[in-house]
Design a protein around this nucleic acid. Structure first.
Length: 1134
RNA sequence: GCUCAAGUGGCGGAAUUGGUAGACGCGCUGGAUUCAAAAUCCAGUUUCUUCGGAAGUGUGGGUUCGAUUCCCACCUUGAGUACCA
C-alpha cells in the first residue's frame, strides 16, 4: 500500500477524538507539564499557514513530554470577545455571539485537520458566560482590595477600613490617589457613608476616576496605550484624541516594582523583557524642592489656566437669566465694592466676588457647597447666599442682602486672611524629579509644563500675556502635532524666580512644552550642561550654561555621560565621581529636608472601561452615583440584548440601548430600565471590560475549566501551578503579557493562585510572511489615425506582460531591450488590427507597472505555467486578451518560452493575494507534511517567508520514510526481526541524540533535517530491521504523528504511540576507533588524514609532517609550530 | 534619537563550549525511466581558476596556532519606543 495521507490522517484524527487520547488528568503520579499556546481571536478570515506555526511547535513539545513520562496539560480555547465581531454586527445587525460561534467552528475544523494533541475537554471561550462569570468575579476581588506598601501586597479593603477606624489615614502606607486629604479616626467615623465610599474608591485596586483617555471618535471607544501606534488606532488607523471621561482604571502602578523584579526569575526572551522594562520605565533619582521667590504677582490678579478660561467662556454664554439680571445690578458698583463675575478662587468658580471687601455672592444648592464654604472661610471670605427665586421675586431685596454682607465682615476672619497670606507667599515651591541630583549645581533655570498648576500663581504681570498666549497655543495642539515636531524649541519666561536650594541664587522659571505634565511632577530643574534638551533650550533662549564637569568641553553639546568624569564648581560635591556624588547629594537633600531619594515609574494605571458591546459587562450598579458590586453569587451578569450596537444618541456606550439593564437589589435580578423609579432598582454600568480582561487569567481556568463553583479548584491550581512553556507572538509584550502578570500577582497576593508568575518559560514564534508574486504590465501610449477608427478601448486591445528579467533590464534602462519590446508591441497591435486599416505607432514614454497576482498560480520555479488559469482568475477579469512575453523576449505560445514572476516578501494578507490556507496544504500534502514543513522553514523565533513549493521536500521525505517499512512494487508492509547492523544503530542513536538536544533547544528545524539524514542513510543501508525502525517511528511521532501512529499500529502495537517511552540514547553506538583529521595550514583546511583516536599528539605530529601532501603544501618552508588537538584538528603554522 | 535583534550560495537555512563554512531542503543543470507528462532514481550545483589551486560568512580593524562564533568601530535591515527630566 502506498502512503495515503488523506486516509491515514482522517482515521487517526477520528481515533484520537473518540478515545480522548490527549485528555489530561488532574491527578497523576507522573510529573506535570503544562504547555500553552496564546489562544486565538477567531476572526472571520480563518487560519492561514502563519497561524499554526506556534501551535505546531508547542504540540511537538507536548507530545515529546508525554513520551518522556510527563502528565501533560495542553489545552486550547478562544479569546472570543473583540472589536471585529462588533463592527460586523454594526454593519449587518448580526449578533456578535452568532458570528463568533461560526468563526470558532471554522477555526476548530481547521485546527483539527492539523492533528494537534489538545485536550479539548478543557476548551474555553472568553465570551462564554460560564467563563466571564469568573472574569467578573476577579473584578470584584480587585475592587475589594487595596495595596499596602508596608506588607507589599494587595489586601482586603476591610483591613484598610479598620486602619481608618483606629488611626485615620495618616499612617496608612498605600498606593492610592495622590490627592487624598488627611483625616483622623474620629473624622472617618463622622463621614457620611457616601463620603467614606468616595475615599475608599481612591484606595481600591480598581477605581473610577475622571481620566484623560485616548478617545477614538471613528471607533467610538477608548483605546489603551498599546492599542495606539504612531498616534492612530492600531485597528483601522483612525485618529485618536485626548478626552476626559469617567472610567474604571486598574492600579497596575502598584505592582510596577514587582513586575520588574519578577522578570528576573522567568525564562522569557530578552527583547520581550526589555520592552516590559522600558514600558515600566523605572528611574532612580531624587525629588528636590525649589522655593519660589515672592514677586508682585498675587493670586487674584494672576492669569487663569487655559482649562479654566475655556470653562468660564462656556459658562458666560450659558449664564441663566437670573445671573445676568443680578450682574446688571452688581457691575454698576465701583471702587472699593467692585464685583467680578465668575472668578476662580482656589479651584472654585465663584458666581460673584468682591476682592476688596472679601465677599462672595453665591447661588445656593451647589454640589460641593460644603467644601466651597470651608475653603472660602479659610481664605477669609464672607459668603452671601442667594437663590433664583429671590432674584425673580425682588431683586432689590437681594441687593440689600448683599450690601449687608459686605458691610459686616467678621473681624477674626480678616486677621486669619492676613496671616494666611503671608504664609502662602513663603510656601510656594516647585517640586521636581531628577535622575541626576548630582548635577544640581549646574541648574541655571527651571521649566514647568504649560499645564502646571503653579504657572498661574507665579507669573508676573509683565509676562502674563505671553504666558497665556503660550498656554492657549499649546492646548490647541494635539498630541500628534506635539509628537510630530520634536525638534522645535518653544517656551516662555514666567518672570518669576526660584531660589537655588544650595547656592541661594536666583533661578529663572520658564514654561515649555517639552516638559510633560503627566510625567514626574510636570516640572524639571534644567541642567543645560548635562542634558541635551536643557542645553538646546538654554542656547535657544540665551540662558547661561554653567559647566560643572571637570575637564569636559560643553561648547557644542551637553555632556550626558555618568562615569568617567568628576563634578566641579559644585561646593561639597567637587571632585566626586558620579556614584559618590549621587549618594552625597541625596544625603544632603534629606538632611536639609529639601528633597529625598525617589524612584519614579513611567507605567500608568490601565484604563479598564470600553464603550463597546462585545465585552464582559461589569458586575456593577450605581447607587447615589457610587459604584456597588453585585454579590458574587449572582454572577454571571450576562450581556443584555440590544437593538443597535452603536453608541446611543446622547453618547452613552452601546449598552445604553438595552431596555432591560437595571439591577433590582430586592430580588437580585436584572430588570427592565423602567423600574428604575422603584427604591430598590438601580442603573447598571454601561461600559464593558477591555479585550485583555479575559486573557489575563485564562491559563488558570484551563486547570479546571468546567468548575461552576470556583474560579478553579484549589487542588487543580496546586497540582498544575503554572505554565511550563508558553508560546505566542511578541506583539503582546506590553499588553496581554504585562496585564496577565499583574493579575497573577494580585491573585497570588489574595491566596487564590499558588505562584506569582504564571509562565516559567516563554517563546515568541516568528511571523510567517507571504511571498507575493508580481507580473509586469508593459504599455506604450499609442495613438494612430483616430479618423480610421482606432479605439484604445477596443475589446481586442491586448495587455502585455513582460517576464521578470525583461522587467529588470527595462528598469535598468537597457535601451536595446526597450526598443525590442516597443517593436513587439507595435507589430502585435498592427497584426491584431490589420483588418481595420489601423496603423499603430507608439508615442510618448513606455510604462511598466508591477501588478500582484494570486500566488497559487505560480509554480515552484516562480513560473506562471498556466496562462489560461491566469486569464480565468477573477482577479484578472480585465486581462482576457493578455499577451505574455517570456524570459527570452518571445511571445509565449505553448512551450517556446516561460514567464517568470517577480517575488517580494510581505505580510500575509488577503489584499496582497499571498495568503495560503492550511486546508489546501492538508488536502494536497497532508497535515504531517504541513507540520514538518512549518518547522523546517527555519528557527521558530525568526520571521520567514512561506513558499509552498518547498513543501515537496518534506513530502518526499515522508514517502521515503514509508518505503523503509515496505517492500517491493506494491509496497507491502514488511519489517525484519533480524539484529540491526552497527551502521544502522549508529544512524539511529545519532538521530536520537540530535533530536533530544534539538527539542531541548527548541531547534525544530534541525531535527527535521536530521530525520531526513537518518532516512536517507537507512535507505542507503537498505535497513529493514524492527530494532531500528520501531524506535525511529517514536522519534518522528511528535513531528509527524499521523504517519507514525499508522506505522506503529502496522508494527503490531495496540496502544497509541503517543504514550510510549521515548527511545534512550546509548553512547556505545557512536564510539569510533579512528578519526579523519582535517589538516590545516594557518587555519585553512587543506586535506584529511585518518589516525586512530588513541594515537598520541606527538605521533600524529610526526606522521603528518612526513606526509607527502604536507611536504608539498609547505613547499620547502619549515613549520614554525604544529598544533594537534586530539580528536579534532591538526594546524600547521608555516 | 534611544533600546534590542539580525546580516552566510539563486532561495529557506546549518555549523550548540573558537577547531573541516555552506549540513538538510527548495530551485537550477545533466542523465536514467516513460510514447509523453507527473512521480521516482542517479550525478552535479559558493565564487574565481592557468584545473595545480586560490579567495570567501555586511565593511574595516583587533585578540588567537586557528574567528561565521570573542572584542572595537562603522554600514545595512527589521522590531520596539519616543521630548520620561
Amino acid at each position: 500500500m502506498q502512503y495515503n495521507h488523506k486516509e491515514i490522517e482522517a482515521n487517526w484524527q477520528k481515533h484520537w477524538a473518540e478515545k480522548q487520547t490527549f485528555k489530561a488528568s488532574n491527578n497523576s503520579d507522573k510529573p506535570k507539564y503544562y504547555v500553552l499556546d496564546m489562544f486565538p481571536y477567531p476572526s472571520g478570515a480563518g487560519l492561514h499557514v502563519g497561524h499554526p506555526l506556534g501551535y505546531i511547535a508547542s504540540d511537538i513539545y507536548a507530545r515529546y513530554k508525554r513520551h518522556k513520562g510527563f502528565n501533560v496539560l495542553h489545552p486550547q480555547g478562544y479569546d472570543s470577545f473583540g472589536l471585529p465581531a462588533e463592527q460586523y454586527a454594526i454593519q449587518t445587525g448580526q449578533h456578535p455571539a452568532k458570528t463568533t460561534e461560526e468563526n470558532i467552528k471554522t477555526y476548530r475544523r481547521q485546527l483539527d485537520r492539523i492533528g494537534f494533541s489538545f485536550d479539548w475537554s478543557r476548551e474555553i471561550k472568553t465570551s462564554d458566560p460560564n467563563y466571564y462569570k469568573w472574569t467578573q468575579w476577579i473584578f470584584i476581588q480587585i475592587f475589594n482590595s487595596w495595596y499596602n506598601k508596608d506588607t507589599d501586597k494587595a489586601e482586603d479593603i476591610s483591613t484598610l477600613v479598620s486602619l481608618f477606624e483606629t488611626a485615620g489615614n495618616k499612617k496608612v502606607n498605600a498606593v492610592c490617589d495622590d490627592e487624598i486629604q488627611a483625616f483622623t479616626a474620629s473624622a472617618w467615623k463622622k463621614f457620611s457613608k457616601k463620603k467614606q465610599e468616595e475615599i475608599l474608591l481612591k484606595y481600591r485596586l480598581t477605581y473610577l476616576s475622571e481620566t484623560e483617555v485616548n478617545w477614538c471618535p471613528e471607533l467610538g471607544t477608548v483605546l489603551a496605550n498599546d492599542e495606539i501606534i504612531n498616534g492612530v488606532s492600531e485597528r483601522g488607523g483612525h485618529p485618536v484624541i485626548r478626552k476626559k471621561m469617567m472610567q474604571w482604571s486598574m492600579r497596575i502602578s502598584a505592582y510596577a516594582q514587582r513586575l520588574l523584579d519578577g522578570l528576573q526569575k522567568i525564562d522569557w526572551p530578552q527583547p520581550l523583557k526589555d520592552s516590559q522594562t522600558n514600558w515600566i520605565g523605572r528611574s532612580q533619582g531624587a525629588m528636590v524642592s525649589f522655593k519660589v521667590l515672592p514677586n508682585e504677582a498675587s493670586e487674584e490678579t494672576g492669569p487663569l489656566s487655559y482649562k479654566k478660561i475655556e470653562e468660564i467662556k462656556e459658562l458666560r454664554l450659558n449664564s441663566p437669566k437670573t445671573t445676568s439680571l443680578l450682574w446688571d445690578k452688581l457691575r454698576k458698583k465701583k471702587g472699593a465694592i467692585k464685583f467680578r463675575q465668575q472668578y476662580i478662587l482656589g479651584g472654585f468658580l465663584t458666581d460673584f466676588v468682591c476682592f476688596n471687601k472679601k465677599t462672595i455672592v453665591e447661588f445656593v444648592g451647589k454640589d460641593d457647597e460644603i467644601e466651597r464654604a470651608n475653603y472660602f472661610a479659610s481664605e477669609g471670605y464672607a459668603v452671601v447666599y442667594i437663590s433664583n427665586d429671590e432674584i425673580l421675586k425682588n431683586i432689590d431685596a437681594v441687593l440689600s442682602k448683599i450690601n449687608n454682607g459686605i458691610q459686616f465682615p467678621k473681624i477674626a476672619e480678616i486677621q486669619k486672611v492676613a496671616k494666611k497670606k503671608v504664609k502662602k507667599e513663603v510656601e510656594k515651591q516647585i517640586d521636581v524629579f531628577t535622575t541626576r541630583p548630582d548635577t544640581i549645581f549646574g541648574v541655571s533655570f527651571m521649566t514647568l509644563a504649560p499645564e502646571h498648576e503653579l504657572v498661574s500663581q507665579i507669573v508676573t504681570d509683565k509676562q502674563k500675556k505671553a504666558v497665556n498666549a503660550y498656554i492657549t497655543a499649546t492646548a490647541k495642539r494635539s498630541e500628534r502635532d506635539r509628537m510630530a515636531d520634536v525638534k522645535t524649541i518653544s517656551g516662555v519666561f514666567t518672570g518669576a524666580y526660584a531660589e537655588h536650594p544650595f547656592t541661594g541664587e536666583k533661578v529663572q522659571i520658564w514654561i515649555g512644552d517639552y516638559v510633560l505634565a503627566s510625567y514626574g511632577t510636570g516640572a524639571v530643574m534644567a541642567v543645560p550642561c548635562g542634558d541635551q534638551r536643557d542645553y538646546d533650550f538654554a542656547k535657544h533662549f540665551d540662558i547661561e550654561i554653567p559647566n560643572i564637569f571637570e575637564g569636559v568641553d560643553i561648547s557644542e553639546n551637553a555632556y550626558e555621560g555618568k562615569e568617567g568624569t568628576k563634578i566641579s564648581n559644585s561646593d561639597f560635591l567637587n571632585g566626586l565621581p558620579y556614584k559618590k556624588a549621587m549618594k552625597t547629594i541625596i544625603y544632603e537633600l534629606e538632611k536639609r529636608k529639601i528633597g529625598f531619594g525617589k524612584i519614579n515609574y513611567r507605567l500608568r494605571d490601565a484604563v479598564f472601561s470600553r464603550q463597546r458591546y462585545w465585552g464582559e459587562p461589569f458586575p456593577v450598579y450605581y447607587k447615589n452615583g457610587m459604584p456597588q458590586m453585585i454579590d458574587a453569587k449572582h454572577l454571571p451578569i450576562e450581556l443584555p440584548e440590544v437593538e443597535k450596537y452603536l453608541p446611543t444618541k446622547d453618547g452613552k456606550p452601546p449598552l445604553g440601548n438595552a431596555e432591560v439593564w437595571a439591577w433590582d437589589t430586592e430580588n437580585n435580578a436584572i430588570v427592565s430600565n423602567d423600574k428604575i423609579n422603584k427604591a430598590t432598582v438601580f442603573p447598571l454600568e454601561l461600559n464593558t471590560m477591555p479585550g485583555w480582561a479575559g486573557s489575563s487569567w485564562y491559563f488558570n481556568r484551563y486547570m479546571d475549566a468546567k468548575n461552576s463553583e470556583e474560579f478553579a479548584s484549589k487542588e487543580a491550581l496546586d497540582y498544575w501551578q503554572d505554565v511550563d512553556l508558553y508560546i505566542g507572538g511578541s506583539e503582546h509584550a506590553t499588553g496581554h503579557l504585562l496585564y496577565a502578570r499583574f493579575w497573577q500577582k494580585f491573585l497570588f497576593d489574595k491566596g487564590i493562585v499558588p505562584v506569582d508568575e504564571f509562565a516559567k518559560k516563554l517563546i515568541n514564534q516568528g511571523m510567517i510572511t507571504g511571498a507575493s508574486a508580481f507580473s509586469y504590465r508593459f504599455s506604450w501610449m499609442t495613438v494612430s489615425n483616430p479618423d480610421k477608427g482606432f479605439d484604445i478601448l477596443d475589446p481586442k486591445m491586448p495587455n502585455f506582460f513582460i517576464s521578470k528579467s525583461i522587467y529588470d533590464k527595462i528598469q535598468n534602462g537597457d535601451a536595446e531591450e526597450i526598443a525590442k519590446m516597443k517593436s513587439i508591441y507595435v507589430n502585435t497591435l498592427n497584426e491584431i488590427f490589420s483588418g481595420s486599416e489601423v496603423d499603430v505607432v507608439g508615442n510618448k514614454g513606455i510604462t511598466v507597472s508591477p501588478r500582484r497576482l494570486n500566488v497559487s498560480l505560480v509554480n515552484a520555479s516562480d513560473e506562471l505555467e498556466d496562462i489560461e488559469a491566469f486569464k480565468n482568475d477573477p482577479l484578472n477579469k480585465g486581462y482576457k486578451n493578455a499577451i505574455f512575453i517570456g524570459e527570452n523576449g518571445e511571445i509565449i505560445e505553448g512551450k517556446n518560452d516561460k514567464y517568470i514572476v517577480g517575488r517580494e516578501v510581505e505580510k500575509m494578507s488577503k489584499s496582497k493575494y499571498n495568503v495560503v490556507s492550511p486546508d489546501a496544504i492538508c488536502e494536497e500534502y497532508g497535515a504531517d507534511s504541513l507540520r514538518l514543513f512549518e518547522m523546517f522553514l527555519g528557527p521558530l523565533e525568526q520571521s520567514k517567508p512561506w513558499k509552498t513549493s518547498g513543501i515537496s521536500g518534506v513530502y518526499s521525505f515522508l514517502k521515503k520514510l514509508w518505503k523503509l517499512y515496505h517492500l517491493g512494487e506494491n509496497e507491502t508492509f514488511f519489517v525484519s526481526e533480524e539484529k540491526a547492523t552497527k551502521e544502522e544503530l549508529k544512524t539511529l542513536h545519532k538521530t536520537i541524540k540530535k533530536v533530544d538536544e534539538d527539542i531541548a533547544n527548541f531547534s525544530f528545524n534541525t531535527s527535521v533535517s536530521s530525520f531526513m539524514i537518518a532516512v536517507n542513510e537507512l535507505t542507503a543501508l537498505k535497513c529493514n530491521s524492527r530494532e531500528v525502525l520501531e524506535p525511529l517511528t517514536i522519534l518522528i511521532s511528535p513531528y509527524a504523528p499521523h504517519i507514525s501512529e499508522e506505522l506503529w499500529s502496522k508494527l503490531g502495537n495496540k496502544e497509541s504511540i503517543s504514550t510510549v517511552e521515548f527511545p534512550e540514547f546509548d553512547e556505545k553506538h557512536l564510539v569510533e576507533s579512528s578519526k579523519n583529521y582535517p589538516i590545516s595550514f594557518n587555519g585553512k583546511m587543506r586535506f584529511m588524514l585518518e589516525f586512530p583516536l588513541d594515537m598520541s599528539k606527538e605521533e600524529i605530529e610526526k606522521q603528518v609532517l612526513v606526509h607527502e601532501k604536507t611536504i608539498a603544501q609547505l613547499d620547502g618552508r619549515t613549520p614554525k609550530k604544529v598544533i594537534v588537538v586530539p580528536g579534532k584538528i591538526v594546524n600547521i603554522v608555516g
